[in-house]
């Protein structure tokens, strides 16, 4: 099984629901978003376009972050059998080499944990205790975090023997892909030819970003202006 995401930027209307959903789902620590939308203009008035590109961890086949992490001896970053690149917070030493080498700006350094409402007490949501959080949500200062493909939801599917429902059933789909109001995001197993992602990657000429880095990202994009 190889999990991938497809983002159709031709559909994306730049609403950032996926960003908000990610923040809520993954206990956003202010300043460290796992998912963000790059927005830029092309051309000059009146021939101008605005493009929205949602970005998150690409879960590369050749993750430079992992190489850097191994290199410094921390060995905190690994890619599991489902194609998900994860960080082991117990091993992470906060050196930030992974951030330095990632061409997509995915990893985020947690300097300190802050309440969502600045200078205020934690909301009941933030007070959900550690034991009720998945390990990917047990943050502490001086670690690096990033998008996990909502590993806590995928893992649940695996544990419950519902692997075939990953990306299909809302319970087993990453939050960002779930909330998109225009259905511009898809998630699933690319090795399963019947999956939506496999079909779209095949039919719609999905591209990968920044191929020149040889990272082989596992997030595919359908781009308005073609391949980058």
């Amino acid at each position: 099984m190889k999990l991938v995401r497809v983002i159709d930027t031709k559909r994306c209307i730049g609403c950032r629901a996926c960003v908000a959903a990610c923040m809520v789902e993954n206990f956003y620590n202010p300043g460290d978003p796992w998912n963000f939308v790059v927005e830029y203009e092309q051309g000059e008035f009146p021939n101008v376009r605005r493009v929205f590109v949602p970005m998150n961890c690409m879960h590369c086949e050749n993750p430079p972050c992992q190489k850097a992490c191994d290199y410094v001896g921390a060995h905190a970053i690994y890619k599991n059998e489902f194609g998900v690149v994860l960080i082991d917070y117990d091993k992470c030493i906060g050196c930030r080499y992974c951030i330095a080498v990632c061409p997509y700006g995915a990893p985020q350094y947690v300097e300190k944990l802050e309440p969502l409402f600045p200078n205020e007490s934690f909301t009941p949501y933030e007070r959900i205790p550690e034991e009720n959080r998945h390990e990917v949500h047990r943050f502490r200062p001086n670690i690096v975090t990033k998008c996990t493909f909502c590993w806590h939801r995928i893992e649940k599917a695996i544990k419950e023997n519902k692997e075939h429902l990953i990306g299909v059933h809302p319970e087993y789909t990453p939050a960002c892909d779930l909330v998109c109001p225009v259905d511009a995001r898809f998630f699933g197993d690319i090795e399963n030819p019947d999956s939506k992602v496999a079909k779209i990657v095949g039919e719609k000429k999905a591209a990968q970003l920044k191929k020149e880095f040889g990272t082989r990202p596992q997030v595919y994009y359908i781009l308005e202006g073609g391949d980058y």
Binding site: Y40, V51, M55, K210
Partner: peptide
């Protein structure tokens, strides 16, 4: 460095 947010 669109489309990424960092230029490497």
């Amino acid at each position: 460095g669109a489309p990424g947010v960092v230029d490497r």
